[in-house]
C-alpha cells in the first residue's frame, strides 16, 4: 500500500510497490489523461509532475512517490497550466492529441522557471517528447504564446 498526494488529494494505491505509477494512475485510479506510449521513457506521453518536476510515470515505480506530490494533466491548475491549455486551443495544436498531455506537462516545467524561453530553449526542453503526428511547429508556437501571455499578465498586475 502506497500513500501519496495526487492533484492535491491524499490517495492510496493497493498495487504492488513495483507497479509503474502510470498504471496506478490510469487503471487503478482511472485518471486517463496520462498516456502510455513506449514504456521506456522515450516518448514523454506519460509525463507527470513529481514534487513539481517532470517525471516519466512509465518508469517510476509507485513506491517511489510515497508521501510525495504527483500532479497529472487533470490537476494542472496553475496559471502556467491554464495559459498552456488555452494557447494549445488558440494555436490549434493537437492533431491526434495522444501525446499532448505529456507535451503540456513538460512545457509547464519550462515556463514555471522561464516564461520567455528562446526558440532553442523550447527545443532543448521539448526534444524528448515524440509527437507522432509531427505537430511540432504548433507545439513550439503555443509554448512561446503561453509564455508571452504569462509575461503580459504579470505586467498588467503591476
Amino acid at each position: 500500500m502506497v500513500k501519496f498526494t495526487l492533484n492535491s488529494e491524499a490517495v492510496t494505491s493497493e498495487s504492488p510497490p513495483d507497479t509503474p505509477l502510470l498504471w496506478v494512475l490510469r487503471e487503478e485510479l482511472q485518471l486517463i489523461g496520462t498516456k502510455f506510449g513506449c514504456g521506456i521513457a522515450q516518448c514523454g506521453a506519460c509525463t507527470v509532475h513529481l514534487d513539481g518536476s517532470a517525471a516519466r510515470a512509465c518508469v517510476t515505480p509507485v513506491t517511489a512517490v510515497e508521501n510525495r506530490h504527483v500532479t497529472t494533466i487533470e490537476g494542472l491548475a496553475t496559471p502556467v497550466g491554464a495559459a498552456l491549455k488555452s494557447s494549445w486551443e488558440a494555436e490549434q495544436v493537437p492533431q491526434c492529441g495522444y501525446c499532448q498531455s505529456g507535451q503540456i506537462m513538460q512545457a509547464a516545467t519550462l515556463l514555471e522557471g522561464n516564461p520567455a524561453p528562446s526558440d532553442a530553449e523550447i527545443v532543448s526542453h521539448m526534444n524528448g517528447h515524440l509527437c507522432r503526428c509531427m505537430a511540432y511547429p504548433r507545439i513550439k508556437r503555443a509554448i512561446a504564446a503561453a509564455g508571452s501571455e504569462l509575461v503580459q499578465g504579470e505586467g498588467s498586475n503591476e
Binding site: 486517463i32 496520462t34 502510455f36 486551443e89 493537437p94 492529441g97 499532448q100
Partner: peptide, 15 residues
C-alpha cells in the same frame, strides 16, 4: 475535438 485534446479529457480506446 481540440479542447478535449488540450486538457487530457479526450478519450481514446486505451482509456
Amino acid at each position: 475535438d481540440v479542447p478535449a485534446k488540450s486538457d487530457g479529457t479526450a478519450q481514446y480506446g486505451l482509456d
